[in-house]
Nucleic acid binder design. Structure first.
Lengths: 233, 233
DNA sequence: GAGTGGTCTAGACCACTGT
DNA sequence: CAGTGGTCTAGACCACTCT
């Protein structure tokens, strides 16, 4: 029932029938119209606030929002799952692995006290025989000490961490860079070619867990984000 | 009150106290623990489902989810607002404007029948004296006929459309490309330099409204997406 | 069959806010 | 001051699903 109220109001807004700034019916009017309790109406309208379609003001009413920010939901999968969902053969190879202390070059990548112990990994993901992306990862060994005993010869650190770390917050930074000589060699592309770089920093319980830089050949990869008010919630 | 229940449960999950797969207390147990009604507990747990932190199964209980997909929320602002929020002077310039029919080159950009009437715009956004991004835009004139009478000399099409089109769904595609000769000249960078390209296609009421390609110099722009279970809802 | 979550009700009190 | 949304209650019925 609250779904019906929600989609009805949403329909009026998306069709332009109720333009931005329009005052939608009061809760008590909707309870009469749909012959339901106020809780049910309230649930539908509260959901619409979360989707950004309406704003509510006490004593005044509920109004259709002026869209200003496109809030896009971008699903970033585990690389293995991403490749397999494209129907391609997946392969993984570890290139470098070292345990070392933080140095000054790491400070922009992971926020830990100096001389903290890190696991530094470089590996590649392959899709259908081609290099799909280059992964450069730092793992905070004080947060995930078990990682030191893991070779990461066969299992990618991303997949491994998903099963180890309970839940996390993350920040993604996305930008375009020219391939460095090293990155170009690793990816099999020319030095200076355009690459899409995704940096993801992950925390759990307030402590930094890992920082990963994924470098994709620019012409072979595309991030897709959907923004659909009707799909949220 | 439901906020307190929500953040308590969230705290247990994020800290790792309740690992993935853990069965959290039943609703009736939480009503006793917090001395509140089941509706209140239910509201908190329903919110946690929406955030992807728990899954619920009838007759069985509610369980902490296994995180597998990083669903990041990326806020894509109007370019003018984006520049101003960085504390930089904003300027806008229209470079080209034409009204024309669809041709074969447009079919990948906007999904309209052949020979539909389009407004084709090329313009630039400046931040602090430097080119911030290049905008190439198609507007479906059958969906927004008023656009034909607007010169877009002073107002950017993005901002103008925000006020005209009631609400919309959108799809974003993000990739890295090497600057074309034209794009390089417009942006004041070398041909072949890495650029971040965001393509956004927008619909309203099922009909295509506009398609825009924003090209940013790769070394000057960064998209930031936050994934924070505690920030949603 | 029993226990869980999904949903709804009718009523209530409160805080805020615009007049 | 009056009316709005924000929130909570105690109880109810149902569908589903596991045992």
């Amino acid at each position: 029932m609250h779904q019906r109220i929600l989609s009805d109001v949403e329909g009026h807004i998306l069709s332009g029938d109720w333009p931005p700034g329009y005052r939608i019916p009061f809760e008590h009017e909707l309870t009469e119209q749909y012959r339901c309790s106020r809780m049910t109406v309230n649930k539908a309208l509260t959901d619409l606030v979360k989707r950004g379609l309406i704003e509510r003001r006490r004593k005044s009413g509920s109004y259709v929002s002026f869209p200003q920010v496109q809030s896009a939901v971008m699903e970033i999968h585990d690389v293995k799952r991403e490749v397999q969902s494209l129907g391609l053969d997946y392969a993984y190879r570890l290139d470098e692995r070292s345990v070392r202390k933080m140095n000054s070059g790491d400070s922009g990548r992971i926020d830990l006290p100096a001389s903290s112990l890190l696991l530094d990994l470089t590996c590649r993901h392959f899709a259908g025989g081609l290099v799909f992306c280059l992964e450069e990862r730092l793992i905070n060994l004080s947060a995930v000490p078990e990682a030191e005993a893991e070779s990461f010869d066969a299992v990618a650190p991303g997949s491994w961490l998903l099963g180890k770390v309970p839940w996390s917050t993350a920040e993604h930074r996305i930008r375009a860079v020219a391939a460095s000589r090293q990155a170009g060699q690793a990816l099999g592309i020319a030095t200076g070619a355009a690459c899409l770089v995704i940096e993801r920093r992950t925390w759990s319980g307030g402590a930094p867990v890992t920082s990963v830089r994924l470098t994709y050949p620019g012409d072979r990869h595309e991030l897709i984000a959907e923004f659909a008010p009707s799909a949220a919630g």
